[in-house]
Computed example of a mutant assay.
Amino acid sequence: MTKILIGIDTGVNTGFAVAADRGNGGELQQVESLSITQAMEKVKKLIEKWGNENVCLYIEDARQRTWFTGGREKAQGVGSVKRDAQIWEDWCKEQCINFNMIHPQNNSTKYKAPLFKKITGWVGRTNEHARDAAMLVHRRFARF
């Protein structure tokens, strides 16, 4: 049975990635950056197609991050990302969607495009947010 894994990197530019786990880990199918509402609509459509029991979101939870660098503007951005993590968690609970909140230190992030392509084999264009979302589900074995 195919399981659909969706990676979400929260923020103004929501990283969104889809991987299909056919027993061999998450093979990337989609990697992009969207608005939060666009990402939520795509999640709904994937659930309609594959069934709620076969879809699970892996959401980076910035609320668990305790280390920050940068000035006041950076701190405001961090607050926004933390709020978005809470919105995603609340939305998944309200919609009865399978999800896991992932501690940032438990995800490989901030890969530059050339290394990301080498690791994942993904040849499409990406930005940092999309790549971070993809790393949440690439080669992850479904546990739901």
Rank of each mutant, 00 (worst) to 15 (best):
M1V: 05
M1A: 11
M1P: 07
T2R: 09
T2N: 08
T2C: 05
I4N: 00
I6W: 04
G7R: 05
G7S: 08
G7L: 12
I8P: 01
D9Q: 05
D9S: 05
D9C: 03
V12Y: 15
V12H: 10
N13G: 09
T14L: 10
F16S: 03
A17I: 06
A17K: 02
A19G: 01
A20P: 00
D21Y: 01
D21F: 01
D21E: 07
N24C: 10
N24R: 11
G25Y: 12
G26Q: 01
G26A: 01
G26T: 02
G26R: 00
E27H: 00
L28M: 05
Q30K: 10
Q30W: 13
V31C: 10
V31T: 05
V31Q: 04
E32C: 08
E32Q: 12
L34S: 03
S35Y: 13
T37E: 11
Q38M: 14
A39C: 06
A39R: 01
A39Y: 03
E41W: 14
V43P: 02
K45V: 11
L46F: 07
I47A: 03
I47C: 02
W50Y: 14
N52V: 14
E53R: 11
E53L: 13
E53D: 09
N54Y: 10
C56N: 01
L57F: 03
Y58W: 10
I59R: 02
I59M: 09
Q64N: 13
Q64G: 03
Q64W: 09
F68V: 06
F68D: 06
F68P: 00
G70V: 07
G71F: 09
E73P: 02
K74C: 05
A75I: 06
A75H: 09
G77K: 08
V78F: 08
G79K: 15
S80T: 11
V81F: 06
K82A: 09
R83I: 15
R83T: 13
D84M: 13
A85K: 03
I87F: 10
I87K: 11
E89Q: 11
W91V: 07
W91F: 14
C92P: 00
K93D: 14
E94C: 03
E94V: 10
E94Y: 12
Q95L: 13
Q95R: 11
C96E: 15
I97T: 12
N98V: 02
N100D: 10
N100F: 11
M101Q: 12
I102L: 07
H103Q: 12
H103W: 15
P104S: 05
P104D: 11
Q105L: 13
Q105K: 10
Q105P: 01
N106Q: 14
N106S: 07
S108P: 00
T109V: 15
K110A: 14
K110F: 15
K112G: 00
A113D: 12
A113F: 08
P114C: 04
P114V: 06
P114W: 06
F116H: 02
K117D: 04
K118D: 06
K118M: 07
I119C: 00
T120K: 03
W122N: 01
V123A: 11
G124V: 09
T126A: 08
N127T: 07
N127F: 06
H129P: 01
A133S: 08
A133N: 02
A134Q: 05
A134T: 05
M135Y: 08
L136C: 09
R139G: 02
F141K: 10
F144D: 03
